[in-house]
Design a protein around this nucleic acid. Sequence first.
DNA 1: TAGATTGTTAATCGATTAACAATC
DNA 2: TAGATTGTTAATCGATTAACAATC
Lengths: 213, 213
Amino acid sequence: MVPKKTVARLILYKRFLKQLIDDGVKNTYSHDIATKFGVTATQVRRDLMCVGYHGASRSGYDVKKLYDEILRFFINTEGKDVVLVGVGNLGRALLSYFSGGKSHIRVVAAFDNDEHKVGRVICGCRCYHINELKDFVDKNKIHTVMLCAPATAAQDIAVQLIKSGVKGILNFSPVRLNLSADVYIEDFDITMNLEKVMFFAGSNTGFEEKINV
Amino acid sequence: MVPKKTVARLILYKRFLKQLIDDGVKNTYSHDIATKFGVTATQVRRDLMCVGYHGASRSGYDVKKLYDEILRFFINTEGKDVVLVGVGNLGRALLSYFSGGKSHIRVVAAFDNDEHKVGRVICGCRCYHINELKDFVDKNKIHTVMLCAPATAAQDIAVQLIKSGVKGILNFSPVRLNLSADVYIEDFDITMNLEKVMFFAGSNTGFEEKINV
DNA sequence: TAGATTGTTAATCGATTAACAATC
DNA sequence: TAGATTGTTAATCGATTAACAATC
C-alpha cells in the first residue's frame, strides 16, 4: 500500500510537472523536484517508484511521460466529481472557491437541511435536501464529500453519508468523526491548524532554542 | 522541543476538556481522552506530560486544573490576534467564518493590494493596503497570518510578510513557500487534500486490499 | 572514459506503543 | 488488600535518508 504521505507528495509533483510541460521543459531530475518541495532526492525517487514509471540514469525523467504515468496512478481520482454537505459560511466559501475555475475538481452539488437553501443555486451550485443525497450519490457515482456541517450535527450527518455510500470525507468540522465503516477521513480543521501556527509563531519570537544551545 | 503532532493533539484535548467543564465533569482519565480521539492512552499520558500537569493514579486528571495547565502551555497563543492577507473568494470566506463568533480566535484586519478593497469593511473586518502591514504588525504585536494569496503572488507576499516581522503563516495558497528565515509555515492546501481524499475514496470502492489477502 | 543520475539496500531517525513498577 | 491508573522505560514500528552498484 502506498503511504499517505507519498500520495500527498505525488499530487504536488503532478502539479509541478504540469507546470514544466506548460513551460516546455522536456526532462527533469529527482534533484529538481526535491529542491522545489524541500525534500531529499532519494525521497522523490522512492515516491516516483510507487507510480511505476522508471527514469533513465543520466537523463532523469521524461516530463511528459512521467506526468502521464502519475495521471494513470490517480486514474480513480481524475475526472471524478465531489459534492459538498453543509452550506454555511464555510460551505458557501468553498463553493465559490471551486466555482472560480482555479481547480480542475468539480463540485457538482451541495446539500443542506435548511429549506431556504434547498432548490436554490448557490455560487453556481444547486442545493438539494440532504435526504436526496443517497439517490444523487448512486446516480452520479460520487465517492467524496466535503463536510462543512456545524460541530453539533457533523457526527450524525457523517453516519448518513456512509449509509449513502460515500467512501471519502474531507472533514472541515471541528469534530473527530467516529465511524467504524470503511471510509477514508481527512480532518481539515482550520481553527486547530491556525492555533498550531499561533503556538509555534509565539514560541518563535523569543528564539528560545538558540538560547538553550 | 514538543513535537508538532503533540501540539496538534493538545489543542484537541483542550477543546474536549472545555466541553467536559461545561458539562460539569470533574475528573477524566487518559483512556477517556484516548477513545475520544482514537489514540492510545499511553499517547495521551505522554502528551499531557509535555504540559507539565501530573494526574493522580487511580483518580486520573482533575479536568479544571488540567485545562488551566494546558491554557498555560498555550500562553503565547491565547488571546493573540491574527490577520488575513489576500481577500479573494477564500479570504472573504475565512473572514466570514471567523466573524461568525464560533471561534475564540480574532481576525483583526485584512490586507490586499486591490484599491477597491482597501478601506472597506469586509465581513466585519477592515481591509488595509498590504503596504500598511508592517506598521500594523508592529503596533498590534501580530505573529500569525492566514495567507490566501493567489498562487502567482504567494511567494512574493510571503517574503514581504517576513520582512514585516511575521513569525507564522497558515498558507492556504497551493504553492510551497521557499523562505529561509525563522518562520513557522503550515501548508493548508485544500485542493491537494481534496485530491488525497478522492484518491483513497477511489481505492476504497473496489476493496482491492481484501482481494489481495 | 569520467561524471552524473538512477533504483535499491541498509542504516538511521523519530514517533508510537507495550509493559510494568509505583501509587492511590 | 485488590484493582485501577499513573509516569516512564524499553521495544516496536514505519518512514526517511545515506550510501552505493548499475547504468547511460
